[in-house]
């Protein structure tokens, strides 16, 4: 009986310990690894902050050793941003070809005022071209009909 009770208490303790083993391990990182990874960049940062106004072009022109082993990239490279309009078709043509529906598609997909403006321009121009072609077509038919008579 005593043995059973001890076993029960042991199991209870073991399971309760496991139940409370949480996720705090996820919220850690190797600080030493970060320090060593950023050693060169930290040196460059200190240099730039001391020499106010210095740019990367200046450092390259002066062949500065601080950037010799660093492959410095452009932090504002447009590669990381989405430049594509819906389905890769320019917003202007969405408006021009399918009118108001095209403007609506651009509006809901991009949520970008500039893109919607382009689509709206396309819509107006597309409509005007459509009207001109429509009347032009009738003028051409009536003109030809007059010639036959």
């Amino acid at each position: 009986m005593k043995k059973n009770l001890l076993t029960f208490l042991f199991i209870l303790f073991f399971f309760s310990f496991n139940c409370f083993a949480g996720n705090s391990e996820l919220f850690t990182y190797d600080r030493e690894e970060i320090e060593s990874t950023f050693k060169q960049l930290n040196e460059l940062e200190n240099y730039v902050k001391i020499n106010d106004g210095v740019t990367l072009s200046n450092l390259r022109a002066a062949n500065n050793q601080l950037i010799a082993n660093l492959l410095l990239g452009d932090p504002f490279s447009t590669d990381i941003f989405f430049e594509e309009p819906p389905l890769g078709i320019p917003s202007f043509w969405w408006g021009c070809c399918i009118g108001v529906w095209g403007v609506a598609i651009v509006y809901f997909v991009t949520e970008d005022r500039d893109e919607v403006k382009q689509a709206f321009k396309g819509c107006v121009i597309g409509t005007l071209v459509g009207v001109v072609l429509y009347f032009g077509f009738y003028v051409w038919i009536l003109g030809n009909a007059a010639l036959w008579y």
Binding site: F38, L41, N42, E45, L70, G73, D74
Partner: peptide, 15 residues
């Protein structure tokens, strides 16, 4: 603001 970025391929520093 200072942003430092480091990957296997390149480094970036923005101040």
């Amino acid at each position: 603001i200072t942003v430092k970025e480091k990957s296997e391929f390149q480094s970036q520093l923005t101040i």
